[in-house]
Amino acid sequence: MDLLPQLQTIFRDVFDNDDITISRETTAKDVEGWDSVQHVNLMLQIETEFRVRFSTAEMAYLKNVGDLVDLLAKKKG
């Protein structure tokens, strides 16, 4: 299942910007406002929508959106 469209909606909500387009290669540098604070907000929102729970380490370290997609895919089994 392609999780990117659903994630993109969450990104647009959390960062309040309907122009955000994400790909597997997107990193925090590419999205305005994606700092450590918004990152946690983003992850909590993803937890709510996907009904998963991230560990502290998973929340703290992600290289890019691709990492996030893989992590979610693994969690959703």
């Binding site: 450590s36 946690v40 909590l44 709510t48 991230f54 560990s55 502290t56 929340m59 703290a60």
Partner: peptide, 14 residues
Amino acid sequence: DSRNHLLLRQPFSP
């Protein structure tokens, strides 16, 4: 939410 405490110095869950 202990993760929020560790990552944000803010102990509460949403």
